[in-house]
């Protein structure tokens, strides 16, 4: 990544270009829109729980939760207006969580599989 963009020392001539005045201040209506959307998604997730979705029940509930979390992160937590580096910081925790999930679950999900060595061979030993 380009170190000069994120860094800011006033005495470095021309070394950094993003002089914006203060933080991005979003309009009030944006916050109202986001919170309304969050309320709506909460209602949807509760309703969806009572609909017979079979195997899709959990993925739907999780997708809604991920969507809600994403708009909180992007708009309420201002990542939408932040530098690319802060997108990385915001995403890193979730990425690592995914590593932990997938590698832990690959153990539990494959425990019941048959043993790679056929049982007859074990008897021969």
């Amino acid at each position: 990544m380009d170190s000069t963009v994120e860094h800011s020392r006033p005495d470095v001539g021309g070394d950094h270009g993003d002089h914006h005045d203060g933080p991005h201040i979003a309009p009030m209506r944006m916050y109202v829109a986001i919170v309304s959307l969050l309320f709506l998604m909460t209602a949807i997730t509760v309703c969806a729980a009572f609909v017979e979705l079979g195997a899709f029940g959990t993925p739907v509930a999780l997708a809604i939760a991920v969507f809600k979390a994403s708009i909180v992160v992007l708009f309420f937590m201002h990542v939408r207006y932040n530098t690319p580096l802060m997108w990385v910081f915001a995403g890193a925790g979730f990425f690592w969580l995914l590593i932990m999930f997938s590698l832990t679950m690959q153990d539990y999900m494959t425990r019941d599989w048959e043993t790679p060595v056929p049982i007859e061979f074990l008897d021969l030993l």
Partner: peptide, 21 residues
């Protein structure tokens, strides 16, 4: 972060997980 299962080869961990690790 993706190699920790090699401490668990002799536990009840799935043998397939062991291969991956």
């Amino acid at each position: 972060f993706i190699v920790w299962g090699h401490h668990m080869f002799t536990t009840g961990q799935s043998i397939y997980a062991g291969m991956v690790f």
